[in-house]
Nucleic acid binder design. Structure first.
Lengths: 360, 360
DNA sequence: CTGAAAGCGCTTACAG
DNA sequence: CTGAAAGCGCTTACAG
């Protein structure tokens, strides 16, 4: 009746049954050797392991165990991007660092990274952490509908779901305040994220509040509030959507903005990679940074430190956010009360890419 | 008898049985609706899906399906590093890009990334691609012992296992040839990877062939062959182990090497990140690149292009390697003959970080 | 300390 | 086209 799919042609899998048969004990005894050491004598347990080793039993099959226990031991990370894109994203990297650190301490969960369009569908997992930057990620709906434990990172509030967030708007206000404080008034802004407007290209009027990336929205709002607080006319500051977040996109955007507005003395961005691209754009136009142009990044990733000159950037506690998200999820999974999350404040780090504007 | 572990407290899972009961059909009919559309009328199939939607059935449980079918639909990527480290590694990113592209075309496999010390053990997968740079990765043994299909990338030959490789030694010879061709003779070398020697620190004599990272070994051998071909005394060229592969490690190593050997006119590295660090070291010592010092990276990752000045580097077809590995694994999984792999040749890309040595 | 048995949720060959 | 039944490999409450 049963033709099991074979993992590799003609390769019978050795199971707990084989070990039991070889030792002439019940399968439950073998199982106990792995799962409940106190249920059998150390000597017998030792013999079980030796026999397993001898006949090539790799230990309990995680799929069968998962079915029986109703858990997978896996936590899904919803990336919200293709895997390769997420991989190149320094913010995701830093956040993952915090997640893995917290999870390693618990020692009980593996991680499965879920890209925006997972081949083979959503994998089985006991819980999820959503890093997906997009406000309307469809996978999010799919996961939450099943009532699976989930924690959102940098996402707008969504029902009663747990979420971890820092105040991006305030952070952005601080960044533009740094520039206006230095005396800049002709400031351009380059953002990632998609808008109603054609991208890459200028974003004007109401479209400026329409990014589907919630993080970008918050940052842009902060720039607006900060600009107006400094008495600048927000509608006059050029906002340019780079279309994606990469050094290349930042360079193209930077060239477009600098060519269109040669009088700018500063450019704010919503990510470090865009800012690094602006540096390259300035180099290609022979505009010296920071003498003639100040550039400010966002997130303070390794990209900011590696840039030449090093980027002034808004430091985000990415790893701490990842750690907090993992702790919150762990608490949910173990039905414990959510841990208190310390205040996570962003902070502007001033480096060589920003200075007073040139005398006009 | 059975207390199933619940995913989240008090949350009964809805199963295929519930759908069958609600519709008054057999479970096999519901299963067929998902798996064999030709086995039931379109109308009935439609009703099954509607009922599933209505009572909140999320579709076949992948764990149960996996157990029954003997497959998981997952391919394991053995990273050989902690997840966060692998994430920050541009070579891994590029290789993954190729893997995901090839896998997306097949549309049937998800990816599970396995770090060097996976919490919860090795996850269930139908096959594996090993990117782990370390020669002696213990997970490799674990996977291969079960006869699971596997493809090695940039690994020394290991039994009959499939493997994808480019000629790193030849590539390294080309890189040092570029420098000697320009007239350099006082060349320092900075490598990643661990040796018997204390790291970070100088590696001398026989230790130079002892890196556990196979890729590093091959590159170092190429530097040696190339140096000797140009008439240089290999034993005289300083080789410095940075201890790890990062911009920071490269900077520290660069400073140590430049301080120890102020006469050097060129530094070769085994990775772009180390080379970017050397650039930072030169800046901190006020040594101009390429006027007084040439710097050459390896792998031609985005780091090389983003550096200032942009790095001369050895281009590797990382994405093509990833793609080839995925295709080879797919062939094994479907019991097809291995696809022919076109010749993948590395190629030196000359950019602004290398030039003729200063007049002495 | 040991073992027989039920059942996790599903798929599939088979009978009707 | 539909359904009853076996079984994937394991864990666990229970009886001995």
């Amino acid at each position: 009746m049963d033709t099991r799919g074979s993992k590799s042609a003609g390769n019978r899998r050795v199971t707990i049954k084989d070990v039991a048969a070889a030792l002439n004990v019940a399968v439950s005894t073998v199982s106990n050797a792995y799962n409940r050491p106190d249920q059998l004598s150390p000597a017998l347990r030792q013999r079980v392991f030796e026999t397993a080793e001898r006949i090539g039993y790799p230990g309990p099959n995680p799929v069968a165990r998962g079915l029986r226990r109703g858990t997978s031991g896996l936590i899904a990370i919803l990336l919200g991007q293709p895997l390769a894109a997420a991989y190149a994203d320094p913010v995701t990297a830093a956040t993952l660092e915090g997640i893995t650190a917290a999870l390693a301490e618990s020692g009980r969960y593996g991680l499965v990274l879920v890209p925006s369009e997972p081949a083979g569908g959503l994998p089985a997992a006991d819980g999820a952490i959503a890093l997906c930057p997009d406000r309307d990620d469809p996978l999010l709906t799919q996961v939450t509908r099943h009532g699976q434990p989930i924690v959102l990172v940098d996402h707008p509030q969504r029902g009663q779901l747990a979420h971890i967030q820092v105040d991006d708007e305030m952070a952005a206000r601080g960044a533009i305040g740094h520039l206006t404080g230095l005396g800049h008034t002709r400031i351009g802004i380059i953002v990632d994220g998609l808008f109603g407007a054609a991208v890459p290209g200028v974003v004007s009027g109401e479209q400026r509040t329409g990014s589907t990336i919630s993080r970008t929205n918050a940052r842009l709002r902060g720039y607006q509030v900060g600009a107006e607080a400094a008495g600048l006319n927000w509608a006059r500051l050029p906002v340019y959507a780079a279309g994606s977040d990469s050094i290349e996109a930042g360079q193209a955007a930077g060239e477009a903005v600098l060519d269109g507005d040669p009088d700018l003395t500063a450019i704010l961005t919503t990510t470090d990679r865009l800012a690094a691209g602006v540096l390259a754009a300035a180099r290609s136009r022979e505009i010296r940074v920071p003498d003639r142009l100040s550039v400010v990044g966002f997130d303070d990733t390794p990209v900011a430190r590696a840039a030449n000159p090093p980027l002034t950037s808004v430091r985000q506690p990415h790893a701490a956010k990842g750690r907090a998200a993992a702790m919150a999820l762990l608490a949910q999974l173990h039905s414990e009360p959510a841990p208190a999350v310390g205040r996570m404040a962003p902070k502007l780090v001033v480096r060589g890419s920003s200075a007073t504007p040139p005398p006009s």
